[in-house]
Simulated assay, not measured.
Amino acid sequence: MPASEPAPKSESAPPPGLPRGWVLGGLGLVTGGVLALHRFVPNTPGRLGSLLETFLFWLGPFTVLLLLCAAARRSRTALIALLVPVVAWTASFGPLLLPGDPPGARELTVLQHNVADDNADPAGTARALADGGADLIALQELVDPALTVYRRELAPRYPYHSVHGTVGLWSRHPLGPTRALDIKPPDIAEPWQRGLRAEVRTPYGEVAAYVVHLPSVRLGATGLASARRDESAALLGRILATERSARVILAGDLNGTVDDRGLAPLTSRLDAPERGLALSYPAALPVARIDQVLARGGTVARIRPLPATGSDHLPVLARIALDMAPPSGG
Results as ranks from 00 to 15, higher is better:
Thr202Tyr: 00
His213Thr: 03
Glu141Gly: 02
Val167Ala: 01
His213Tyr: 12
Pro159Ile: 08
Pro177Gly: 14
Leu175Ala: 03
Tyr150Lys: 10
Gly165Leu: 13
Asp182Thr: 12
Val217Trp: 01
Trp170Arg: 01
Leu154Ser: 06
Thr202Ala: 06
Arg151Gln: 14
Val207Glu: 00
Thr148Cys: 13
Trp192Ala: 05
Tyr158Ala: 04
Glu199Tyr: 04
Pro203Leu: 11
Ser171Trp: 00
Ala146Val: 07
Val143Gly: 01
Arg151Thr: 10
Thr202Phe: 00
Glu199Ser: 13
Arg157Gly: 12
His161Ala: 07
Gln193Lys: 15
Ala180Asn: 07
Val143Lys: 11
Pro174Phe: 10
Tyr150Cys: 07
Leu181Glu: 00
Arg201Ser: 04
Val207Cys: 03
Gly168Gln: 03
Leu169Cys: 06
Val163Arg: 04
Pro186Lys: 09
Ala209Met: 14
Ala155Arg: 14
His173Met: 07
Arg194Thr: 10
Arg151Glu: 14
Pro185Val: 12
Leu169Gly: 02
Tyr158Ser: 04
Arg201Asn: 09
Thr178Phe: 04
Leu196Val: 02
Tyr158Gln: 09
Glu153Ser: 11
Pro145Ser: 09
Gly165Ala: 07
Asp187Asn: 13
Pro145Val: 12
Glu141Lys: 01
His173Ser: 12
Arg157Gln: 12
Thr202Val: 08
Asp144Phe: 14
Thr148Tyr: 14
Tyr158His: 08
His213Lys: 09
Tyr160Ile: 12
Val149Ile: 15
Ile188Asn: 07
Val211Tyr: 03
Pro203Ser: 11
Ser162Trp: 02
Pro185Gln: 06
Val149Leu: 13
Val212Glu: 01
Tyr204Ser: 13
Val212Thr: 02
Val163Pro: 05
Trp192Glu: 04
Val207Met: 04
Val200Leu: 07
Val212Gln: 00
Val217Tyr: 02
Arg197Asp: 05
Pro174Leu: 11
Ile188Lys: 11
Pro177His: 13
Tyr160Gly: 05
Ala208Ser: 12
Val163Thr: 11
Pro215Ser: 09
Tyr204Cys: 10
Arg179Lys: 15
Ala146Cys: 10
Val212Arg: 04
Tyr150Trp: 12
His173Asp: 07
Glu141Cys: 00
Val211Glu: 01
Trp192Gly: 04
Ala189Asp: 10
Arg152Cys: 11
Thr178Gln: 06
Asp187Lys: 13
Leu154Arg: 03
Leu214Gly: 05
Thr202Gln: 04
Arg172Cys: 05
Ser171Arg: 05
Val212Gly: 00
Ser162Pro: 06
Tyr158Trp: 11
Ala146Met: 11
Thr178Trp: 03
Arg179His: 15
Ala209Trp: 03
Thr148Pro: 11
Ile188Val: 15
Thr148Gln: 15
Glu190Leu: 15
Pro203Glu: 07
Ser171Leu: 04
Val207Ile: 08
Arg201Tyr: 09
Pro145Leu: 10
Gln193Asp: 14
Ser162Thr: 08
Gly165Phe: 08
Lys184His: 13
Ala155Trp: 08
Arg151Asn: 14
Ala208Met: 09
His213Cys: 09
Tyr150Leu: 10
Val217Lys: 02
Arg152Asn: 15
Gly165Gln: 09
Thr166His: 01
Asp187Met: 08
Ala208Phe: 08
Pro177Lys: 11
Pro186Ile: 06
Ile183Met: 04
Pro185Asn: 12
